[in-house]
Amino acid sequence: MWLTLLYSCTGGAALLYALYRWVIPAVVQYHAGLVLIWHDRIVEGLLNTLTQTTRPQRMLAAVQKNATRGDPRSVVKAIDQFCRQKEWAMNVGDEKGCILDSVVTEVNPATVLELGTYCGYSTVRIASLLPSNAKLITLEFNPDYAAIARQVIAWAGLEDKVQLVEGASGDWIPKMKEKFGIETFDLVFLDHWKDRYLPDTKLMEECGLLRKGSILLADNVICPGTPDYLEYIRNSPRYKSQYFKSHLEYTKVEDGLEKSVFLG
Rank of each mutant, 00 (worst) to 15 (best):
G11K: 10
Y17A: 09
A18M: 09
A18H: 09
A18F: 11
R21F: 13
R21H: 14
V23W: 14
V23M: 13
I24L: 11
A26V: 09
V27N: 08
A32H: 11
G33W: 05
I37T: 15
R41K: 14
I42P: 10
V43S: 02
E44I: 04
E44P: 00
L47D: 07
L50W: 13
M59C: 10
M59R: 09
L60V: 12
L60M: 10
Q64C: 12
K65W: 03
R69C: 00
D71M: 09
P72S: 11
V75A: 08
I79K: 11
C83Y: 07
Q85A: 12
Q85R: 15
K86L: 15
W88E: 01
A89H: 12
M90C: 08
M90T: 09
N91D: 05
E95V: 15
L100S: 04
L100V: 10
V104D: 03
P109Q: 05
P109F: 04
P109V: 07
T111R: 14
G116H: 02
S122Q: 07
V124T: 14
I126H: 05
A127V: 13
A127C: 13
S128Y: 07
S128L: 03
L130G: 04
P131C: 13
A134G: 09
A134E: 12
I137R: 04
T138F: 07
E140M: 05
E140A: 06
E140K: 06
F141H: 10
N142E: 14
P143E: 10
A147S: 05
R150Y: 04
V152N: 05
V152G: 01
I153N: 00
W155T: 13
L158W: 07
D160I: 00
S169T: 09
S169C: 08
G170E: 04
K175H: 12
M176V: 03
E178R: 15
K179Y: 05
F180H: 08
T184L: 03
L187C: 01
L187I: 02
L190V: 03
D191A: 04
W193C: 03
D195S: 10
Y197A: 02
L198Y: 08
L198Q: 08
L203E: 01
L203Q: 06
M204A: 01
E205C: 12
G208A: 06
G208C: 08
L209M: 06
L217S: 05
A218K: 08
V221R: 06
C223T: 15
P224C: 06
P224Q: 07
G225S: 13
G225Q: 13
G225N: 12
P227N: 08
P227A: 06
S236G: 07
P237M: 11
R238F: 02
Y239Q: 08
S241G: 01
K245Q: 12
K245F: 02
L248Q: 00
L248D: 00
E249W: 11
E249N: 14
Y250T: 05
L257V: 11
V261W: 07
F262A: 01
